[in-house]
Simulated assay, not measured.
Amino acid sequence: MKRFYFLLPVLFAVLILSCKSFDESPKALVNVLLIDAPATWDSVIVEIQGVELDFVPDGRDGTVEKIFLPYEPGDKEVDVSQLVGGVALPVARSEIQMGKITGITLRLGTENALFLDEDRYPLSLPGGNADYSLPLSVDLEQGISYDLILDFDLEKSIQVVNASPLELDFNPTLSAFSGVGRGDISGTTSPTSLKPVIYAIQAGDSTSTHTNSSGGFLFRLEPGTYTLYLDPKNTSYADTVLNVEVKSGSTTTLERITFARK
């Protein structure tokens, strides 16, 4: 019994020291999301290992730290062709100290494949390169939640080298941006049986998306005026062109877009 009571003050002191050692520095919440993919293929499976952030802590200019955030699910093979119409895949989430994120790297695995008519076609990474780095500029402020968006553009990433037999070239093409200050364009097309590709064009640059099974689509863009070019990918229907203004922090919802028959 005497030994027990002797240890109590020691244990209490250890607990106090442990509580004081908790990191109470100000932090921001960072969410990394993966979006977008075309409906050209039945499904495209990409193995995601996680993301790595380039981070410069406050007061330490010139010192870049690497912060790896793993994709936690045991099954890391993701059908990215389902990420349309505003659907996003949460890749990672973490609290990070004050500072600046200057870049992001998506780390892929080797189990990448395309499925067409129940046939599987492996997608080999060029040169075995698994890391795809992109510039980013996000100043973190205390108590703010930031969405970092990775847009995996499969329309540009997968090219048909030979039609019969089918041969594919896989070169992952991505863009990265913060959701802060952006605005959305939301719309629906019909007939829903079509699988149109939709381009948002500004100053000679463009980004693309496709519709989901209900004909819905969504863009998240910098404020400004964009030309929407809708290609029905069906020679029986005519293309459609619209001019749309995007406002920061708001969603521009379009009236249903019906493709006209030629």
Rank of each mutant, 00 (worst) to 15 (best):
214 S>H: 12
76 K>I: 03
119 D>T: 04
205 D>V: 05
135 P>K: 01
168 L>E: 11
217 F>D: 03
100 K>G: 02
242 L>F: 05
202 Q>P: 01
132 Y>K: 10
203 A>T: 03
124 S>R: 04
170 F>Y: 13
156 K>M: 11
113 A>L: 14
102 T>L: 14
133 S>E: 12
195 K>Q: 09
209 T>I: 06
127 G>C: 14
10 V>E: 10
240 T>V: 14
103 G>W: 00
11 L>I: 00
181 G>Q: 06
10 V>P: 14
30 V>P: 09
79 D>Q: 15
231 D>L: 11
7 L>G: 14
153 D>H: 08
224 G>E: 02
250 S>D: 12
195 K>W: 03
228 L>N: 09
103 G>T: 00
167 E>N: 13
10 V>H: 13
65 E>D: 13
54 D>Y: 05
204 G>R: 02
234 N>G: 07
146 Y>E: 01
222 E>V: 12
101 I>G: 03
160 V>H: 02
163 A>P: 00
90 P>F: 05
108 L>A: 05
196 P>Q: 10
4 F>V: 07
117 D>H: 09
255 E>C: 01
74 G>N: 14
255 E>A: 05
1 M>G: 12
116 L>D: 02
89 L>G: 10
104 I>R: 04
194 L>C: 08
41 W>E: 07
152 F>D: 05
18 S>T: 04
177 F>C: 01
95 E>M: 11
42 D>I: 09
69 L>D: 14
162 N>P: 05
5 Y>F: 11
180 V>W: 10
257 I>T: 02
122 P>I: 06
144 I>G: 00
251 T>P: 07
92 A>Q: 02
78 V>H: 00
99 G>I: 08
7 L>K: 10
94 S>G: 02
46 V>R: 01
129 N>L: 13
236 S>K: 15
162 N>H: 15
130 A>D: 14
242 L>Y: 03
40 T>M: 06
134 L>H: 06
250 S>L: 09
233 K>C: 05
41 W>P: 02
40 T>Q: 09
143 G>T: 03
149 I>D: 06
36 D>M: 05
209 T>P: 07
118 E>S: 12
183 G>A: 10
113 A>P: 10
180 V>T: 06
7 L>P: 08
217 F>W: 08
54 D>H: 10
214 S>N: 12
123 L>F: 07
98 M>G: 14
206 S>C: 03
152 F>H: 06
131 D>M: 12
205 D>L: 13
196 P>C: 11
113 A>I: 02
3 R>P: 01
209 T>H: 06
169 D>I: 03
229 Y>I: 08
110 T>F: 08
121 Y>I: 05
248 S>L: 06
147 D>W: 07
65 E>Q: 15
82 Q>D: 15
31 N>G: 03
112 N>K: 12
62 G>P: 08
